[in-house]
């Protein structure tokens, strides 16, 4: 059984394989900012909330896989992605209130929400009446 080429491996790419795979990461990430906080969306196909661990150490958010390798190894005819390993780090800005972190994993997307500290939130423009 074979399928359309995912990418064409050649020696040059073999040499660059490490950087290639980390660059073209399976766990692509979107980070967006609203006026109240940040959202980090990570593609995590094959993971649910049981297989993931989130940890904040100082200003760094770690996202790790807690899955262990199965005892029986699966023999793949072709393997283009891995559903066991995951390790991501994010440096959080000081404007984030780390106690408000919340996350959900749905359909292979891990969505992490972080709220800004009260003083860092964009306040609505205030009109000052002239007396």
């Amino acid at each position: 059984m074979y399928c359309t080429k995912y990418y064409k491996p050649d020696t040059r790419q073999q040499l660059w394989k490490k950087s290639y795979s980390s660059y073209r990461s399976l766990h692509a990430t979107n980070i967006s900012e609203t006026k109240d906080g940040f959202t980090i969306d990570i593609l995590v196909p094959g993971f649910d909330k049981e297989g993931l661990e989130l940890k904040i150490e100082k200003d760094i958010l770690f996202v790790k896989s807690t899955k262990e390798a199965p005892e029986t190894t699966i023999k793949y005819n072709k393997k283009e992605f891995d559903t066991l390993k995951l390790h991501k780090r994010f440096r959080l800005p000081s404007t984030i209130d780390t106690s408000t972190i919340s996350a959900k994993a749905e359909n292979g997307i891990l969505s992490i929400s972080l709220e800004k500290k009260e003083e860092a939130k964009d306040k609505a423009p205030k009109n000052i009446t002239i007396q």
Partner: peptide, 23 residues
């Protein structure tokens, strides 16, 4: 082109197609 794993057993092939974010 989504990344895909192919597993072959005695009685079947299994494709694992990575497709996060769909229904």
């Amino acid at each position: 082109l989504p990344a895909t794993n192919i597993i072959e057993n005695d009685d079947a092939f299994t494709l694992e197609v990575s497709a996060p974010g769909f229904d």
